[in-house]
Amino acid sequence: MEMGEKIYNLRKAKGLTLEELGNLVGVGKSTVRKWEKGMIANMKRDKISKLASALNVSPAYLMGWEMDDGDIGNALVADCLEKEIDNMASLAPSEKDHFKAYINLLEINRKKVDDYTNQLLSIQQMEHDAVLAAACQRTDIEVTEQMRTHDDDIMNDDSEWK
């Protein structure tokens, strides 16, 4: 996809007019139209940066330097899923806010969120596994009936759990 097509699709997905996007970048609507039509090939770096920021993508994405086929953030923006998220009745308002915030992050920040989420899931799994291990019977020694009775007495004694 050419840069002009990307600008057009992202602008439409965000519900911006030519004039609104131009105001965000600091140019006129005719300049935005020319970008979208591919009539201006040499954009200044500061304009590329402002344009990328306004469209919530990376400058590298706009320039075609990044492969983004698997980039969920740009796909979500391009497919107008913010509106779809709003229409999902099964999601709580806070969940909708989380999803919309995520898709509005720049790609590099979405990757940070993904990494942090994976770390938290790993920690959560380790905690879950530790609880399960604690609830199991010991296998390192032979457990006698007297030991089981003692353990059960402790588990059933409410004063032990205050």
Results as ranks from 00 to 15, higher is better:
residue 3 M to K: 10
residue 3 M to G: 01
residue 4 G to F: 05
residue 5 E to G: 12
residue 5 E to K: 15
residue 10 L to A: 07
residue 11 R to Q: 00
residue 12 K to G: 06
residue 16 L to V: 08
residue 19 E to G: 01
residue 21 L to R: 01
residue 22 G to I: 04
residue 23 N to P: 00
residue 23 N to T: 01
residue 25 V to R: 00
residue 26 G to I: 11
residue 26 G to D: 12
residue 26 G to T: 11
residue 29 K to D: 02
residue 30 S to A: 13
residue 30 S to E: 12
residue 31 T to R: 08
residue 31 T to N: 06
residue 37 K to L: 14
residue 39 M to I: 06
residue 43 M to L: 15
residue 48 I to N: 02
residue 50 K to D: 11
residue 52 A to Q: 04
residue 57 V to K: 00
residue 57 V to Q: 01
residue 58 S to D: 12
residue 60 A to K: 11
residue 61 Y to G: 01
residue 61 Y to I: 09
residue 62 L to Y: 02
residue 63 M to D: 03
residue 73 G to I: 07
residue 75 A to R: 13
residue 76 L to Q: 02
residue 76 L to R: 01
residue 76 L to C: 07
residue 77 V to T: 09
residue 79 D to V: 03
residue 80 C to P: 00
residue 88 M to S: 08
residue 90 S to N: 08
residue 91 L to Q: 05
residue 92 A to V: 08
residue 94 S to D: 12
residue 96 K to M: 05
residue 100 K to G: 01
residue 100 K to D: 00
residue 101 A to M: 11
residue 101 A to W: 13
residue 102 Y to T: 01
residue 104 N to S: 13
residue 104 N to Q: 13
residue 106 L to R: 12
residue 109 N to H: 12
residue 109 N to K: 11
residue 109 N to D: 15
residue 110 R to E: 03
residue 112 K to S: 04
residue 113 V to K: 02
residue 113 V to H: 00
residue 115 D to V: 11
residue 115 D to A: 15
residue 118 N to P: 00
residue 119 Q to F: 09
residue 121 L to A: 04
residue 122 S to I: 03
residue 122 S to N: 11
residue 122 S to C: 04
residue 122 S to F: 06
residue 123 I to F: 09
residue 123 I to W: 05
residue 125 Q to T: 07
residue 127 E to P: 00
residue 127 E to R: 11
residue 129 D to M: 10
residue 130 A to G: 02
residue 134 A to M: 14
residue 137 Q to L: 10
residue 138 R to C: 06
residue 138 R to V: 03
residue 139 T to G: 10
residue 140 D to C: 08
residue 140 D to Q: 08
residue 141 I to G: 00
residue 142 E to W: 10
residue 142 E to A: 10
residue 143 V to G: 02
residue 145 E to R: 12
residue 145 E to M: 12
residue 147 M to G: 01
residue 148 R to Q: 13
residue 148 R to S: 08
residue 149 T to L: 14
residue 150 H to M: 08
residue 152 D to K: 09
residue 152 D to A: 08
residue 154 I to R: 07
residue 155 M to P: 00
residue 156 N to S: 07
residue 157 D to Q: 03
residue 160 E to V: 02
residue 160 E to H: 06
residue 161 W to Q: 04
